[in-house]
């Protein structure tokens, strides 16, 4: 399976797709460089296939904690100003973004 790393979908169009999902615009040089490096890394990941783990359950939480909850008690909000002033752009009480078209 050595070739698995060579035919990874991280050719320029594959990397473009992934970058689109991640919302990072890449230059052509970046696509080439990162694509090659990631293909390399993914090739290294192939070793996981041989690990004796087929019968093991997936482990997503390392501690056996469960039912961690808080009571339904509202706090009094601290006001919007201290948050709005963090925004790169704002308009009145809103965080400002370019116009979003949702209408038909």
């Amino acid at each position: 399976m050595k070739d698995a790393s060579k035919n990874q979908p991280l050719d320029p169009s594959g990397i473009e797709h992934v970058a689109g999902l991640a919302r990072i615009r890449l230059t052509r040089e970046e696509k080439e460089k990162l694509g090659a490096q990631l293909s390399d890394i993914l090739g290294y990941m192939e070793k996981l296939k041989s690990a004796p783990a087929d019968d093991l359950e997936q482990l997503s939480h390392i501690l056996p904690l469960k039912n961690v909850t808080r009571p339904d008690e509202p706090s009094s909000p601290a006001g919007s100003e201290q948050y709005l002033r963090l925004a790169p752009e704002r308009e009145g009480g809103f965080f400002k973004v370019p116009p979003v078209i949702e209408e038909t």
Partner: peptide, 13 residues
């Protein structure tokens, strides 16, 4: 990848 890694994480644990 991810599903496999989570199994191996259990192996390591």
């Amino acid at each position: 990848y991810y599903g496999r890694a989570l199994r191996i994480r259990r192996l390591i644990k």
